[in-house]
């Protein structure tokens, strides 16, 4: 009757299997906390309405006249901001697991060190893909369209999810570093607002003070937004149209995502190894 534990399993297979189990756990949880989806979508939907119908009229898009141009311009910014906020789902989730002692429990099991965070990240990625879908529908309703065919649009969505994936590792590090879910929620988001407002997400960079223009154009969020606008064929004005961010938006977005993952994934896993509930 006794169940024998397999003595040796290949470590990569083990890491994948553990991440899979933890991702399954996350996916089981989402439908049981429907308020999470509401919180995750209500803020971006309000932003869409606010910018599309209120502020948008006061923000001209250089080189693209017409009211519709702003909505076309806006949606990529909304998508990127929504994906950036993925930070919160990972940080709150992991902080919650910490305070409930679950992290200690997982750490006492013979599982892969990356398993808990990787599972969380995968599960949250699926969740954010769902949020993304809702935002796309929202975009369609306010008149946003893609113009370069479905393939390029798909590439843009892939970049957005890659960005969410990168930001989830940032959230994981934050979640494991703070004591409670409440602190994690604010620590995960507080720096994101200035970061998104100092980008091209809502205001074209040529409209910003010239001192801020280079900062806003190299901002990782701007690079994601610019790559999406480029791939969707939406208006994408630049203050310095000959600069690297304007010339190679897709490359820059990929470089940023890779850099974030390379820095934060190892840090998060290292934090997990020493994380204790107290």
């Amino acid at each position: 009757m006794s169940v024998e534990l397999p003595a040796r399993v290949n470590p990569i297979g083990r890491a994948l299997s553990d991440a899979g189990v933890l991702a399954w756990r996350s996916l089981k949880r989402f439908p049981r906390t429907p308020d999470m989806l509401i919180y995750a979508t209500i803020q971006p939907i309000m932003f869409v309405l606010l910018f599309a119908y209120v502020f948008g009229n006061a923000i001209p898009i250089p080189g693209f006249p017409g009211a519709r141009a702003y909505r076309e311009f806006l949606m990529s910014g909304i998508f990127a901001q929504t994906m950036a906020f993925a930070v919160a789902s990972a940080s709150v989730g992991l902080a919650d697991d910490m305070s409930k002692g679950l992290i200690d429990r997982f750490r006492s099991l013979p599982m892969a060190r990356s398993g808990v965070i990787a599972g969380r990240v995968i599960g949250d990625l699926v969740f954010n893909a769902f949020v993304m879908l809702i935002m796309v529908l929202c975009g369609f309703i306010v008149g946003w369209r893609w113009h370069n065919g479905f393939g390029q649009a798909l590439a843009a969505f892939a970049i957005l999810l890659l960005f969410a994936f990168a930001m989830l590792w940032v959230g994981a590090l934050i979640g494991l570093s703070v004591g409670s879910a409440e602190v994690a929620a604010s620590a995960g988001l507080i720096w994101l607002f200035p970061l998104t407002f100092l980008s091209n997400a809502f205001v074209p960079t040529p409209n910003l003070p010239s001192g801020l223009q280079p900062v806003a154009e190299w901002n990782p969020i701007s690079s994601i937004v610019a790559a999406c606008r480029h791939l969707f064929g939406n208006p994408s004005p630049f203050a310095s149209p000959d600069g690297f961010p304007a010339q190679h938006p897709v490359w820059l977005s990929l470089i940023w995502c890779a850099a974030i993952i390379l820095v934060f994934a190892p840090l998060a896993v290292r934090k997990y190894r020493s994380a204790t509930t107290h």
Binding site: L5, V9, S17, R29, T33, L102, D104, R105, P110
Partner: peptide, 29 residues
């Protein structure tokens, strides 16, 4: 070893069966 910590460390949103299945998988069953 088996560890049962000071506070019951179980997933509130999973069922009893799901919790045990998850731990079983993580023990590599």
């Amino acid at each position: 070893v088996g560890l049962s910590g000071q506070y019951a460390a179980v997933d509130e949103l999973l069922t009893g069966r799901e919790n045990l299945w998850m731990f079983g998988r993580l023990y590599r069953l």
